[in-house]
């Protein structure tokens, strides 16, 4: 089978659904395992920080959520591009599945950051460039979801959402570089610095495990949502009517 054929087969709704139902339980159980080790690592194994004491442990939910909020947006925009250029139905389905998850990761990042800010900075919120651009990201997700809900015609909704997602991409470099381009209350990058990360290994390992946990979790939930969206949009198709989980 050539690469093109494989791609087409994967892109067919039926094989996507079949593959997704195999992958979902795997992703879910791996993410549960990773969350268990990551939480133990972050809350027990990692030592307290020299400056921030135990409050720094909020990093183990705050930073993975913030990374995921941006990762989800990259996927959302990529599906948007595929929707606009190739008019692929699956891309639209995946985009609709990603948006609420991206929004919830952004919400977690903002909320836990705010809880962390109170004891360390002395405030829950400041309008610095990092915090403001992350809040704009949340509104971009909300905007995308509102568009999907407001436009009845699926094709038009997909196009409008894809356009919004692509326009919003400009916010991603702003979020990432805001701490370098302007002076902000938020500190600079720790792990993605070009020189070696300025975090002790015993603190970094649980962070990376938590990141893997968030990522596998995301794929599991995204695939569940995508299956639902796909079955519904294909409800007139023969393969859905004959689907063992639908036929009673």
């Amino acid at each position: 089978m050539t690469i093109k054929q494989t791609f087409h087969k994967l892109g067919s709704p039926r094989s996507f659904d079949r593959l997704a139902s195999i992958l979902i339980p795997w992703f879910l159980s791996i993410s549960v395992l990773l969350f268990a080790t990551g939480l133990y690592g972050g809350l027990v194994y990692a030592p307290a920080d020299y400056q921030q004491g135990d409050s720094f442990r909020i990093i183990y939910v705050h930073v993975p959520a913030a990374w995921m909020s941006m990762f989800c947006y990259v996927l959302l925009a990529a599906s948007g591009a595929v929707t606009l250029i190739w008019r692929m139905k699956l891309a639209d389905v995946v985009a609709r599945a990603i948006a609420p998850l991206g929004a919830s990761f952004t919400f977690i990042a903002l909320f836990t950051g705010s809880i962390w800010g109170k004891p360390m900075w002395g405030t829950y919120w400041v309008w610095d460039a990092r915090l403001t651009s992350e809040l704009i990201l949340l509104f971009l997700y909300f905007g995308f979801m509102a568009l999907q809900a407001a436009i009845d015609d699926r094709k038009n909704a997909a196009k409008a959402g894809a356009l919004l997602a692509l326009v919003g991409v400009i916010n991603l470099p702003i979020i990432h570089f805001s701490v370098e381009w302007w002076n902000t209350l938020h500190q600079g990058a720790t792990v993605t610095k070009f020189d070696s990360p300025s975090i002790a290994t015993s603190m970094l390992i649980p962070l990376l495990i938590m990141f893997a946990a968030f990522k596998t979790y995301f794929f599991a939930i995204m695939l569940i949502r995508a299956r639902a969206e796909l079955l519904w949009s294909e409800r007139k198709a023969k393969w859905v009517c004959e689907h063992p989980e639908v036929r009673q």
């Binding site: 809350l43 135990d54 409050s55 909020i58 939910v61 609420p100 836990t112 809880i115």
Partner: peptide, 21 residues
């Protein structure tokens, strides 16, 4: 280390959102 309210509310909220999803 005295930061119980902050740490546990952050982890609690995250768990809540993830389970709700």
């Amino acid at each position: 280390g005295g930061y119980a309210v902050y740490v546990w509310s952050a982890f609690g909220l995250t768990t809540l959102v993830l389970v709700a999803n």
